[in-house]
């Protein structure tokens, strides 16, 4: 009894160690699997939600510009030029240019007010193409971020 008490006060008994090892053997694979699955899915969810967030903002900007556009131009360098009215009750026009840079950022340049704003930061491909009717432009946009990717196709028309 004295010997047992001596061991108990200085550490674990064999029984405790056995139970602790048993618990670790049971819980470790479960915890590892949960961490692996959750870690991957949390990262994927984060990337996809960032893509959807930027897609929403980019779409609202494009919808605003296509709603006001009178003509468009696709020079072939991967940029899209839209002509729209400079201001309400005015016949003067301004040019909006959408272009992607080498850092996967999509920029919107408003020559009318001299502003350049970043629309999205994960655009891996921006390919405008003029459709055969000449009044519709097809925008093939690929959004990518840390392994998650989403390809979108937009069609915009001018009168």
């Amino acid at each position: 009894m004295k010997h047992a008490q001596h061991i108990r006060r200085h550490g674990y008994t064999l029984f405790e160690v056995l139970i602790a090892v048993l618990l670790l053997a049971i819980f470790s694979p479960i915890v590892a699997e949960l961490c692996r699955t959750n870690g991957r899915s949390i990262s994927d969810v984060n990337n996809r939600s960032a893509i959807v967030r930027e897609t929403g903002f980019m779409t609202s900007m494009l919808a605003s510009d296509f709603g006001a556009a009178t003509t468009f131009l696709v020079p072939g360098d991967g940029s899209l030029h839209l002509q729209e009215y400079a201001s309400p009750f005015s016949a003067s026009q301004k040019e909006i240019v959408y272009a992607r840079d080498e850092n996967n950022c999509l920029w919107r340049s408003d020559a009318g007010v001299g502003q350049t704003n970043m629309v999205a930061s994960c655009v891996t491909a921006f390919d405008p193409t003029v459709m055969p009717d000449g009044t519709t432009v097809r925008l093939a946009i690929t959004m990518g971020r840390c392994g998650s990717q989403r390809s979108l196709v937009f069609m915009g028309a001018v009168p």
Binding site: V52, T59, A63, A68, A69, T70, S151, L152, F154, M155
Partner: peptide
């Protein structure tokens, strides 16, 4: 994500009225 389906064309439908285009109504 269902609002922006992948590889499916989404159309910016805008009004053909020059008045609304002048006002900058969104498509």
């Amino acid at each position: 994500e269902q609002r922006y389906p992948e590889n499916t064309p989404l159309y910016f439908n805008s009004n053909s009225s020059p008045w609304e285009r002048n006002l900058g109504v969104s498509a």
